[in-house]
């Protein structure tokens, strides 16, 4: 049997390897079986084309409350497009996405479906938080300003209330002391943590992460993953597109392998990383293993 689990959990930027592995394991055994939790996000036969290119080919997917789902796959496999569809940043053109039972983005009418009004879209994805690869902070606002903006403009909180909640969120990601700094004054890892705080401030029921560590210097990846692990432990429902196999192995309840716009396989981290049977998945993981296996060859 092939074991594709990358040696040492794989996360080279993870200093507390053993501790988190234990946490990861204990979490999986002690947590309520995902089957008992209600479905919070469901996709059925979701498809999307860019011109001639069909990037998503009928994706079925269910995410239950408190579940952490990692989407992995080669570049161009459609995993980012799939995630962005869940926040309707991409208009999927086939199938349905339901968030807490409500159809996202479209309205069914007699003559087929048409785009729902913006207010309705916002209503449906009100409980969805999104974190981007490029952080997408607003550079003319301080860290606190970034976190408070939607609280003020959308939730209509008073300046005091927004500030209080904003500071609490920054504190949660360990950046209360950087509240008055502008994004340009923060490191990439700090910027991404502010972006996470900004999404968390709206008290989402589900968080979507689109390659949250891919734009970071390797030594800054750990601090962002740590925040995400804490969130997972607190029971946040998360869908994460990632290249961090170590994170997926330790934190995910289920891992989905996408290739060429299709779900090739879905399973527990153990199924995916230890007992891979799909040739395409084996190939994908072998590439990772080859690329990261410098310490194995040291003895040869």
């Amino acid at each position: 049997m092939n074991s594709f689990l990358i040696p040492g959990g794989g996360a080279s930027a993870e200093p507390r390897k053993q501790a988190s592995e234990q946490q990861g394991d204990s979490m999986k055994t002690s947590a309520t079986a995902p089957g008992e939790q209600p479905t919070i996000l469901s996709l059925s036969k979701v498809g999307k084309s860019f011109g001639q290119l069909r990037v998503l080919k009928g994706i079925d997917l269910e995410v239950r409350r408190s579940e952490v789902v990692c989407l992995i796959g080669p570049s161009g496999s459609g995993k980012s497009t799939l995630l962005r569809s869940m926040a309707f940043l991409e208009e999927y053109d086939e199938g349905q996405i339901h968030i807490e039972g409500k159809l996202l983005g479209w309205q069914e009418t007699d003559k087929g479906r048409k785009r729902a009004p913006q207010s309705q879209i916002n209503q449906v994805r009100r409980n969805v938080g999104m974190v981007f690869q490029q952080f997408n902070l607003w550079p003319h606002m301080t860290a606190l300003g970034n976190v408070c903006e939607a609280l003020r403009q959308v939730r209509k909180l008073s300046a005091d209330e927004a500030r209080k909640r904003g500071m609490a969120m920054l504190d949660k990601v360990g950046l209360a002391h950087k509240a008055d700094n502008y994004p340009a004054q923060l490191s990439g890892g700090q910027q991404q943590r502010v972006a996470i705080a900004r999404a968390l401030a709206m008290e989402p029921h589900i968080m979507l992460f689109d390659e949250p560590t891919s734009a970071l210097d390797p030594e800054l990846v750990g601090e962002v993953l740590q925040v995400m692990k804490t969130l997972a432990k607190e029971g946040m429902t998360m869908v994460v597109v990632t290249h961090e196999m170590g994170f997926a192995a330790q934190v995910a309840d289920s891992v989905i392998f996408l290739d060429q716009g299709e779900v090739v396989t879905r399973g527990t981290p153990r199924d995916i990383f230890h007992n891979a049977t799909q040739p395409r998945l084996q190939q994908f993981l072998q590439n990772y293993l080859d690329r990261n296996a410098f310490w194995q060859d040291g003895g040869k």
């Binding site: 926040a87 997408n136 959308v154 709206m202």
Partner: peptide, 14 residues
């Protein structure tokens, strides 16, 4: 940058 607008969009900012 477009991404900044997407971030705003996701947060329900009109």
């Amino acid at each position: 940058a477009r991404g900044q607008l997407e971030a705003a969009d996701c947060l329900g900012i009109t």
